[in-house]
Amino acid sequence: MKLLEVACFNVQSAIVASEAGADRIELCDNADLGGTTPPLKWLAEIHGIVKIPINVMIRPRGGGFVYTDAEFQSMKDAINAFISTGMVSGYVFGVLKHDRTVDVERTVELVRLADPLPCTFHRAFDETTDLEQALEDVLGCAIHSILTSGGASKAVDARETLARLVKKAAGRVVIMPGGGVRSTNIGALKESTNASAYHSSALLGSDTVANAMEIEQMKMGVR
């Protein structure tokens, strides 16, 4: 069975995703910015209602992925705050250097802070200049999974690249296609990449809450 992770940008989406059969939630704020750190209070609001694992986005702002010392400290503070809730299953972040390579030192620091919970390197990965080198860099950080569109705006447009990354990863890290993934293309992604996990917001049109039927159809598409 393939894993389906749903990016949830509000409490209601998290509840919908849990009830519709998603396997995991990526909890984040500000969909228009591509996701930022969600309010801590959201966890209290979904406590006892959401029954699936919750990974939390750690991203202090929208825009690029090169952070000041103060921004990086805020990321560490956020991880510590979420750890204290005991409700988080993992963390999602991505840190780059000015030359658009993976900031290995800072990534390792975040991974160690989050230990023993698994961490996902998000689509900052797609901003690197060499995806295959970035894969090796991320592997050296003990990251559990990489959320990537294969460098394209939509994952379905980079199926060959994603398939190559899955093959190169060889089970050392989970390559999770994301970016425009919907029920209409998740089957093609599965067929082309054979990835073990997929990521979608399950948002249709101008909706702001995840669509339950869309989630159900995507689950069917990756069976």
Rank of each mutant, 00 (worst) to 15 (best):
M1G: 15
L4T: 10
V6P: 08
C8K: 00
N10D: 15
N10H: 11
V11M: 06
I15A: 07
I15D: 04
A17D: 04
S18V: 09
A20D: 06
I25W: 01
E26A: 10
D29G: 07
D29M: 13
N30I: 00
N30Q: 13
G34L: 05
P38A: 10
A44K: 14
G48M: 07
I49R: 14
V50R: 12
P53L: 06
I54L: 10
N55L: 14
M57A: 07
R59C: 03
G63D: 02
G64K: 09
Y67Q: 08
Y67T: 09
N80G: 12
A81R: 14
S84A: 15
T85Y: 04
G86R: 03
Y91S: 02
F93N: 05
V95W: 02
V95L: 10
V95E: 02
L96M: 13
V102L: 01
R106T: 06
V108A: 02
V111G: 01
R112D: 13
L113R: 06
A114N: 08
A124F: 15
E127I: 00
D130L: 12
L131P: 04
E132V: 13
A134P: 00
A142D: 15
I146G: 03
A155F: 01
R159C: 14
R159F: 01
L165N: 02
V166N: 05
A169I: 03
G171H: 07
R172L: 01
V174E: 14
I175V: 01
I175K: 00
G187L: 04
A188F: 01
L189G: 07
S192T: 06
S200K: 08
G205F: 09
A210P: 02
A212E: 08
M220C: 00
R223E: 14
R223C: 12
